[in-house]
Amino acid sequence: MLSSIILKPVKAIFGNRPGRGFLIAGTIIVLAVVIMAIFAPFIAPYNPTAISSDTFSPPCWKHIMGTNRLGQDVFSRIVWGSRIILYVVLVATAFSMVLGIPVGLVSGYYGGKLDRVLSTVMDSIYAFPALILAIVIAVVLGPSPMNAAVAIAFVYVPTYFRMIRGQTLSLKGQLFVEAAKAIGARDREIMLKYILPNLIPTILVVFSLSVADAILTEAGLSFLGLSVTPPTPDWGYDLRVGQAFFLDGYWWLVFFPGLMIMLLAMAFALIGEALSERTSTSAR
């Protein structure tokens, strides 16, 4: 997964035992971005789309992250841009969960022909590189945040499907499922009341890791102009526009959006990593 590229150096610093520190650090960053998104009008000092004559100003007291070629305040754009990325990624992830979890559960529980067909389809989607697949879908659907969300959602359905199906397969063989059958529970009740609650730790882990990944994918899509239309503030889009001026020495146009994307993706990856560590050690 893309997010592991980011996680590797972090692990090198923290050591290989992700724990409370990871969870706390990740949660703080995520909360900070969420607060930024919710209170954007109060936090951003300027209108993020307002053009001014003060172009390419380096970071200073007036513009703590500088301004871009149109004289827009980079910090204000970062603050407002958090809304787009969170919106796209969370809508996308909600879609993938709503599809991937029930289908994985049913497929793993019943097995048989349906399971074989579904697994083959999901595996072939999974085999594609996430970003490339998302790009293809987004190109077909046309550029808009909603379409970007749909593209990302589609890409991550197999991730949920595979994890949930695998876990269901192993839970299905557990004695408490046989006990549920013995008390006369229907298949639906066995899946919803006995298997699903035991899948929650897995779901949380997959959620955090796939959100981390989806953030990078979203940034990639908007970097290619497949998400928002200008002048809407967006981290990936700003990164693309900024990189054209990087060699001219206007580093802040790339640095701040890039940093935010990395931080947010890393935060979710840290949470996911810590959770997966916990659930694997607490399992008896």
């Binding site: 408490f176 046989e178 006990a179 013995a182 006369g184 009341k193 006995y194 035991n198």
Partner: peptide
Amino acid sequence: IRRRMQIIFQDPYASLSPRM
């Protein structure tokens, strides 16, 4: 008919769902 025919398993650590 399972209402009238029940079972108590050997392993009480595995026969109850940990999340119920």
